[in-house]
Design a protein around this nucleic acid. Structure first.
Lengths: 253, 253
DNA sequence: TAGTGGTCTAGACCACGAC
DNA sequence: TCGTGGTCTAGACCACTAC
């Protein structure tokens, strides 16, 4: 067990970051990197108390929150284990389309249709809580899964929050990857609809006549400000959104 | 402040239910009942320590988890407050369609098309993790918003988990309300698609030709067992799914 | 019986917000 | 300055699991 514990050298008790948070992060990293595999037993709370020289309550909080996040499973009397299935929850998580496609074993490519500065329409002004006459960055792009178009992205970005957005090369990195690297949203809103695409959308997604699209719109906030408003349109016969999770983490009504 | 606190008489330290959980429940109840309104200040942790005669760590855990659940907001140095907007998150929460419709100010009605015991098809057998040749309860119903059909419900229920399901009168209570009253799911899975409805579905939902449907399928687990598998089909032009939430509560990747 | 996690206590120090 | 929440400690008792 000591080999598992040695790697916690990076806990710094005098850092501004709370200790329980450092512990969570360290464990998350080890699971994400594959160093700790699904089903593997974690060090016990007492092991960690000794190894890290912190109180058991602190360890307990870190492990409890990891359980709530679905990363580990705990069994009373037995121990803590890396969770079997990392839940896939694209409905409620921000996931980079490129990663999503590549994780499924396919190859991702994208084509930027336009990246420009535009005046906000009244609708967008309201949705993004802007002042009248504001300018916005607008990106339109198509994402391909193995040569087949899978997603049409139409994104507005608030220049006040992301001034460099317009200078990026989004053929090299997706807009989602760029934005996630720039900020962590405080709040998100998702809406999902079934629509009939207009002719342009149908052509961009190479869809047959009469086929429906799944359309997801998302707004994200940072510091009470709408940073980005994006509409993602998918061919109905090639894509579905999904989410699976333990219900402890959510409020039922 | 004492008036706020008096109502916590129902905390029982020797009950099997953990104290922090009883406190959470008591506060949830008061918010749900409207007794505590949005924006209202809660008693401070120290107030509650004195009033309930429990340790501050216990109070803190209850309030912290309520914060994670989005029911209250806490401001360092200021206090705890009932959250402004009860998030609407029908994408990730189980919500009774009748309540959802009535909360929007419309009237709800439903028609039961069939409620019967059937042999599980191979597909359903796999989706519900059953043994071959198992029998299931199946409910088909249409839900109306102000006379206009809004949802077609096609539900399979595991009789091993819910033996009395087939004896209920689902014209008086929705299946969701019944099931939520019977159990709290451990785990849920959602999938969302855009589809073209078949003719029967189109007629049941009184939809125009060529219009798409939004289709949500959901499986819920209790004790490692699939309890119910439901397909909810909505007219694409009359319904959208939505969710808004603080991102603290979720894992980003 | 020994090891595990679940919960709880009674203190403590600190940073933040309002005054 | 005072009251607030954020975090942490060093113990404790208990229930569960495996042996």
């Amino acid at each position: 067990m000591s080999a598992l514990i040695d790697c916690f050298d990076d806990i710094n008790k005098s850092a501004p970051e709370p200790i329980y948070h450092q512990i969570k992060q360290a464990i998350e990293d080890r699971i994400a990197s594959g160093e700790w595999r699904a089903g593997q037993k974690l060090p016990s709370e007492n092991d960690l108390v000794v190894a890290l020289d912190v109180s058991r309550m602190t360890i307990n909080r870190a492990l409890r929150e990891l359980t709530q996040a679905g990363l580990i499973k705990r069994v009373h009397g037995l121990g803590s284990f890396v969770a079997e299935q990392p839940r896939h929850a694209s409905l409620i998580e921000l996931q980079d389309i490129a990663l999503e496609i590549e994780n499924s074993g396919a190859s991702h490519a994208s084509k930027v249709l336009s990246l420009e500065s535009v005046y906000a329409s009244p609708t967008v002004t309201e949705l993004m809580q802007l002042d009248e006459g504001a300018t916005l960055y607008r990106l339109r792009a198509v994402h391909y899964q193995d040569e087949l178009p899978l997603q049409l992205e139409s994104r507005y970005v608030n220049p006040a929050a992301m001034p460099d957005f317009i200078n990026q090369d989004f053929t090299r990195m997706t807009s989602t990857a760029y934005l996630l690297q720039q900020f962590k949203p405080d709040e998100m809103e998702h809406r999902v609809r079934a629509i009939l695409p207009d002719q342009q959308t149908r052509e961009l997604l190479t869809m047959a006549d009469g086929q429906p699209c799944l359309q997801l719109t998302r707004r994200t906030w940072k510091d009470e400000q709408v940073v980005t408003y994006v509409t993602l349109t998918y061919p109905g016969d090639r894509y579905e959104l999904g989410a699976r999770y333990a219900t402890d983490e959510y409020q039922l009504r």
